[in-house]
Design a protein around this nucleic acid. Structure first.
Lengths: 195, 195
DNA sequence: CGGATGACAAATATTGAAATCTGTCATCCG
DNA sequence: CGGATGACAGATTTCAATATTTGTCATCCG
């Protein structure tokens, strides 16, 4: 029977996140992570098939935590336009904050985006589904013109890529970023409302 | 007095483009370029202050050539909506074609985008100015609602970043790319028209 | 004289041998 | 028995010696 101090996947994820944050994705090794837990590195491989899988799982947890506020906004009552604006602004703010204040984890995340990762694709699908829910609500309320919510949600996500895709992170600190975001939002809002 | 076979900046640019295309940005050296011209590498430095400046000039020429079709479209008569759609589609097609068929020059261009380069910024400003001209024309014709054309043009450019920014080149071959582009265009067009 | 040259120093890139890391698995322990 | 271990092979990274490249400039040439 397992002891009280049985090694869990959750413990490994926490330790791995710490180590990644401390050393960065380029320097963190599986042995470092095992050492932080006081176990041998072989034990880590009992829970994750590879270092890449572990990195993905850590990033997924980090993304989910960073973005859990968004699901709440999507589910709120109230005007859809205001909600979608706040949802997008929150996404932008969260990404920018992480890029600046948690650079090592952000770098880990960027590595993952560079490879074609199921995890990131799934995460994006979750986000688009949330936009879609707000859009559908907006149509129901008569705020937005009646359009296929799926493609429109995807379009909103793509159109705002400049403000959430890590490929553009370098431009998020520019003084014009905020104004650019608001200008783009106005145009999109007008497009959602239609005539 | 200079002889008939005086070395010109133009000759150097052509040779440099050939060499870059042949060897790629990682392998092409100034000596290679000089050798292609049958001169010493010191002569190249009489015309360009550094290898980086030469690379920028080559890329600028390449970009200008790749995009000269766009200026023509912007200047055409006819409905602004159709013209803007064609302008954006042409930009997307040109970028995608270059990424696939001229990968070495495209890599050179991506290097330049990676650094924050005045050349690329100037090029982007040119493109945004063209969008702006079409938007202003659309407003004049009563096709688009009356909005500050500068910010709107910039928004259109940012919103379509997914389809022209080299950071997203990997996604341009996806089967959904064309449909995504058209869906986004519909949303933007609706936003430009307004109520 | 204007422009090209190539020897040169400093910066950068390449290389290959040594060190480290990933992932496996036979063995061990409670 | 279920889970942890650590020795090990192959893959990857590091590091320092070596080679190449960039950029300068005194000199040369037509």
């Amino acid at each position: 029977m397992a002891t009280d101090n049985a090694l869990t996947a959750e413990q490994i994820l926490s330790a791995a996140e710490d180590v990644l944050r401390r050393f960065g994705p380029a320097k963190a090794t599986v042995v470092d992570i095992a050492r932080a837990l006081g176990v041998s590195h072989g034990s880590v491989y009992r829970h994750f098939p590879s270092k890449a899988a572990l990195r993905e799982a850590v990033t997924q947890r980090w993304l989910d935590r960073a973005h859990d506020e968004l699901a709440a906004i999507a589910a709120e009552p109230g005007p859809a336009a205001e909600r979608l604006h706040r949802w997008l602004a929150t996404l932008f703010a969260a990404k920018r904050q992480k890029a600046l204040e948690d650079p090592e984890m952000f770098a880990t995340y960027m590595t993952l985006v560079g490879e074609v990762s199921t995890t990131v694709e799934a995460h994006i699908e979750t986000l688009v589904a949330q936009i879609r829910a707000i859009v559908e609500d907006g149509v129901r309320r008569g705020e937005f013109r009646d359009t296929p919510a799926g493609p429109v949600a995807r379009s909103v996500f793509l159109a705002t890529a400049h403000f959430h895709d890590p490929a553009h992170a370098a431009e998020w600190s520019r003084p014009t970023a905020e104004a650019d975001f608001e200008a783009l939002w106005s145009l999109l809002l007008e497009g959602l409302r239609g005539r």
